[in-house]
Amino acid sequence: MTNIPYGTALIIGAGPGISASLARQLSAAGVKIGLAARDTAKLAPLATETGARTFALDASEPAAVAKLFEDFETGIGGPEVVVYNASQRVRGPIAELDPAAVGRALTVTGYGAFLAVQQAAKRMIPKGRGAILLTGATAGIKGYALSAAFAMGKFALRGLAQSAARELGPKGIHVAHFVIDGMVRSASRPDEADNTIDPDAVAQTYLDVLRQPRSAWSQEVELRPWVESF
Rank of each mutant, 00 (worst) to 15 (best):
P190L: 15
A193W: 09
R53M: 03
R38D: 06
D198K: 06
R189H: 15
E49N: 05
L210T: 02
K171N: 01
A216L: 11
S215Q: 12
T107P: 10
E192G: 07
V179T: 05
A201F: 09
M1D: 09
V227H: 12
V65C: 02
G143H: 14
Q204N: 03
R224W: 14
G78K: 10
K67G: 14
P93G: 07
I94Y: 14
A148R: 11
G130W: 00
D71E: 12
K122L: 15
K142V: 10
R185I: 09
D200P: 08
P170H: 07
G51L: 11
A137H: 07
A165I: 01
R189T: 15
A149K: 04
S215N: 11
K32N: 10
Q219W: 08
E49A: 04
G130P: 07
F178T: 02
T107V: 09
D208T: 03
V82A: 00
T135S: 07
T138I: 13
D198H: 01
F155Y: 03
L35K: 07
S27L: 04
L207V: 01
A36L: 00
R214L: 15
I12K: 02
H177T: 02
G140K: 11
L46F: 10
T196V: 10
A100R: 09
S188C: 08
S218F: 11
V83K: 13
R189C: 13
D181R: 01
A148C: 11
P199I: 02
Q204I: 00
A64M: 04
L97D: 03
S147I: 08
E167T: 02
G7R: 15
T196N: 10
A156N: 04
Y206Q: 01
L22D: 06
A41C: 08
E49M: 06
G34Y: 04
D191M: 15
G92T: 06
L157T: 07
V184P: 14
L22I: 05
R89L: 15
L210P: 09
N3Y: 09
V102L: 13
L97G: 02
F155V: 10
Q204C: 11
